[in-house]
Design a protein around this nucleic acid. Sequence first.
DNA 1: GCGTCCAGGTCTACC
DNA 2: GGTAGACCTGGACGC
Length: 296
Amino acid sequence: MEIKIKTTPDFNFKRTAISHGWSELAPFKIDDKFSVLSRVVDLGARLKPVAVKIKGAKNGLRVSFEGQLSAQSVEKIKRDVRHMMRLDDVLDPFYSALAAEPAFAWVARAGAGRLLRAPTVFEDLVKSLATTNCSWSLTKIMVSRLVENLGRPARDGGGHTFPTPAAMAEAPEKFFRAEMRSGYRAPYFKELAGRVASGELDVESWLTSDLPTSELKRDMKRVKGVGDYAAENLLKLVGRYDVLALDSWVRATYARLHNKGRAAADNKIARHYARFQEWRGLALWCDMTKDWMEDK
DNA sequence: GCGTCCAGGTCTACC
DNA sequence: GGTAGACCTGGACGC
């Protein structure tokens, strides 16, 4: 079965799919040509998960899966795709903020600025934690082992869902250390899952929070293992772009692009993008990834 | 084969 | 509030 989802004219499938590393982390999969993004969608505890393939099409997306599904399940898939691909993001103010800058003219032309995200804040938070203080290859290992071991299998063998907070909360800390290979992060995952599963911590509310970014960031940092980088990365995924999320890759890329290869102080990087105000984090990320389409 | 360093950082103790 | 040191792991690199 195939469904179509309309998009705005400025939407760019490939730019969104490879907007950052998330498309390489399970349960996402991306093909070699970066034209098909796959994922297992969780349809709820009483239904078997389904593997879907998402492709770009003229003025929209084509989403395909095996067999027939109820209208309710189709609506769940549409909701997840809209959310993951940021179809409801309004980027006109962002493009306007860049309009006077020739070096950023490509952003609006390319339809860049939509950062791929998971269907839930919980998944984005767990993945952000898994990126800290390790190589990208280790992040991929940790996430794939988590998904394969604690996720629910799709009905057509197309992979597993991302585990629910309850599934992670039920797993012993030993699993996160020995199977997931997350090392010292193991108690952080266990504690986070337990707090979310019990209802003590509502991370999904961060999507619609009215708090100023600084206060929301403070709340995020109350999660063990979440520091400045992880919190700011998550803030971008919930639609707050007045943070930079500087990590070693961004610092190295900034040094290469704007500082003659020499390391730049964080406040120098902040000054460079300050003129974009509430869009500075997104402007920085687009600047850092401008050549990704050519590279990939 | 082995040791060292570092990667899409954060926490804790101490000052 | 600022900072040094510790922390798991996998992969790259030098020897």
